[in-house]
Nucleic acid binder design. Structure first.
Lengths: 203, 203
DNA sequence: TGCAAATCTGCATTGAGTGCAGTTACTGTC
DNA sequence: GACAGTAACTGCACTCAATGCAGATTTGCA
């Protein structure tokens, strides 16, 4: 059992208070219309203290550092014996996408909207994506040492993620209301785009 | 002929002076070690004037807005009759890559390095990339209306660019400072990344 | 209880970016 | 060539994110 110390519990509570205050204010006044001082005041801490919890204003939108990447790494680790790299990746990303909370919840929806509209937030989001890609590529290479060198693995992962991101970009532009429809169209589009990788597998 | 007015010529000269001063200083003291005031002083303008030429500090690293994208769009427009979407993209990206100035010249090399090391610069770069992708996807969809819907086109372009970017990320990690080496590696990376599509084409 | 470490906080500072207002330089016209 | 209109330049004051520092407070643990 964890048996958290008082210090840690307090810190955790403060952290959540900051995130909640920030989300609240961002929705109410917009990202740029909200200052660190506003957030600090709402969370009942000193302005300076904010920066001992989050390194920057954007950071508060990604309160849990890791997220979906662990699911993908797990899928790579527990792959079936006759799976090729593309198969593993495909299933992993599909699953991570299906049951991830990334589309659900207020913070997630807000984050999505801000990524589209605020440059600083988008920059941070893309950087996190790239980091995740590199990590996945590393594990994929480790899982298939003969079939994929490091560069090949990175290219493969990049192609998959790029296809999804590209599709998402257009889909989100159309303000897709229905989640299921969006998901289906995404699958359709990525299947077409990634056809060569899949066909290579079948042969 | 253009027959530029004096005003325009002067403005152009100042613009170039700013870029040159900035590049010089970035190389000498690093990006974060250089302030707008430093750049302005070196370019012999007032600090405030900098912002009437570039909207932000990053912007100075992309002095010509468009760049390589036109080449890609042209390749799409002048495609052969029996080319499929992937063929067109493949040729377009490789050509754009081969004879683009993006790897040559001091500014380009500096930009590459700063994209890797400075978050703000990377953010801006990625945003430009996404914008370019969307534009290319639009044209690709227009060129192949039945084979690709908008989402499919975006996914395909995303997959191509993602593959290249992913491969490049690993290759550039090894801190290749030499321009020729970098260029060779870039070709290498794109070949690896786009291999599956080429193989699919051959069959 | 009392000491050490972690945490919180205010204060001062730097630097990007913006709005405004006054001045200067250029353009086209009579 | 003088003139009026407009574009560009500049300094000033301001806001806000982010960082360093130092002193106060709280917590962990012997």
């Amino acid at each position: 059992m964890a048996e958290l110390t008082l210090r840690d519990r307090k810190r955790r509570r403060t952290r959540r208070a900051i995130v909640e205050a920030a989300v609240e204010l961002f929705e109410e006044r917009g990202y740029d219309g909200t200052t660190i001082a506003d957030i600090a005041e709402a969370a009942e801490i000193g302005s300076r203290t904010f920066f001992s919890y989050f390194a920057s204003k954007e950071e508060v939108l990604w309160p849990e550092s890791d997220g979906r990447i662990v699911a993908v790494l797990e899928a790579i680790a527990t792959r079936a014996a006759d799976d090729g790299p593309a198969d593993v990746l495909l299933r992993a990303l599909r699953e991570a996408n299906r049951d991830s909370d990334d589309m659900v919840g207020r913070t997630a929806a807000l984050r999505m909207r801000l990524i589209r509209t605020v440059p600083a937030v988008r920059g941070r989001g893309l950087q996190l994506q790239l980091d995740a890609q590199r990590e996945i590529a590393r594990h994929l290479h480790a899982a298939f040492p003969e079939e994929l060198d490091e560069v090949g693995a990175a290219a493969l992962v990049g192609a998959f993620v790029g296809a999804i991101t590209g599709a998402l970009q257009v889909l989100l532009e159309e303000a897709g209301d229905d989640l299921d429809t969006t998901r289906r169209r995404m699958t359709e589009a990525t299947d077409t785009a990634l056809g060569p990788w899949m066909r290579a597998r079948e042969s």
